[in-house]
């Protein structure tokens, strides 16, 4: 499915009848550094999520990331402009309902939305809402749990509340995967996890993408986005600040810094070395390529040898 944003603006204030409230909100928030008069969460955002791509979304808190992704399955409708799925406008209720079955939205801390008595029933919630026959529901629940590395027979009858935090998040993931979405939209999927589970989840997400799913991932970690995304969208104060490949987006570390983001560590380090006169030709560096090029620049070893250790640093 192709999701297209056409000149989308979204205002918290919404209709004019709520202007007064907006005025107040603005007054109350102005002291906290939000630009006065700024009640737009999104401003003139145009982009297309291409089928099969991995789109990373970056931006500091309050840049509009969460609002943006809630447009993707019609939870929120643009104040101006429109969002379409394969050309159909999501403002139409029926379109939105059917798009919700094809665009799986995983909220931040999704384990906070678990509710059923058993893991099985929780994962089955989406498929059952889709009015699928029970044997199809069963198949999907089992497959979804398997995808996140859990066994329906082993864990299905347990209460989701008895599981560990990491397992709960897997179950919550499975709840969305069971709807068999074409597009998976993830809001900070690894927030609050320890490094090991973080690596596990990122590998999981990469495998979904590898199996053909379109993935949109919001993240604070530029390293994760650089490693996984085909394209990265950087939002700042509700506007598109940058949209392009990781190499294009991370090329200008100084500009990113101005909107409160830092380029990935290898990229930042590479540009520091470049300033010091190192010839580092690549547009985008990770640890392994950076080590190899530095070695080459210093004439050590055979620079092309890939570092056995460094590349695996991010699991």
């Amino acid at each position: 499915m192709r999701l297209a944003f056409e000149q989308v603006s979204y205002s918290y204030a919404g209709a004019a009848s709520r202007k007064k409230k907006a005025g107040k909100k603005e007054k109350r928030q102005a002291d906290w550094g939000n630009a006065p008069g700024e009640v737009w969460a999104l401003r003139n955002v145009s982009l297309t999520v291409e089928p099969g791509e991995f789109l990373g979304v970056a931006g500091h808190t309050g840049s509009g990331k969460s609002t943006l992704i809630q447009h993707m399955n019609g939870l929120v409708h643009p104040t101006e402009g429109r969002v379409t799925a394969d050309g159909a406008d999501l403002v139409d209720k029926d379109v939105a309902v059917s798009v919700r079955q094809r665009v799986g939205l995983v909220f931040q801390y999704p384990e906070n939305q678990l509710f059923a008595n058993t893991v099985y029933d929780d994962v089955a919630y989406g498929p059952r809402n889709m009015k699928l026959p029970e044997d199809e529901v069963d198949r999907r629940v089992r497959e979804a749990l398997l995808l996140v590395g859990l066994d329906a027979d082993e864990i299905g009858e347990r209460s989701p509340f008895d599981l560990s935090g990491g397992q709960q998040r897997r179950v919550a993931f499975a709840g969305v995967l069971a709807m068999e979405p074409e597009v998976l939209v993830l809001d900070e999927p690894v927030a609050g996890l320890d490094p090991l589970s973080r690596a596990d989840f990122l590998a999981l997400i990469a495998s979904f993408h590898a199996s053909g799913m379109t993935v949109v991932m919001v993240s604070h970690s530029m390293e994760d986005l650089a490693a996984l995304a085909d394209r990265i969208l950087v939002l700042s104060e509700g506007r598109v600040f940058a949209l392009g490949t990781p190499a294009e987006v991370f090329a200008d570390a100084a500009a990113l810094k101005a909107v409160g983001l830092a380029a990935p560590a290898p990229q930042t380090f590479a540009s520091a070395l470049r300033e010091a006169g190192f010839p580092l030709p690549r547009a985008l560096y990770d640890e392994a390529t950076l080590a190899a090029d530095i070695a080459a620049a210093l004439g050590c070893g055979d620079g092309a040898a890939s570092a056995p250790d460094g590349g695996g640093g991010r699991g």
Binding site: L75, V97, N112, Q113, Y125, G126, N129, M130, G175, M179
Partner: peptide, 15 residues
């Protein structure tokens, strides 16, 4: 929080 839960369940097809 209720707002977030509501939107999350709607995303899972709750009507």
């Amino acid at each position: 929080e209720l707002g977030v839960i509501y939107r999350a369940q709607v995303s899972r097809g709750a009507r």
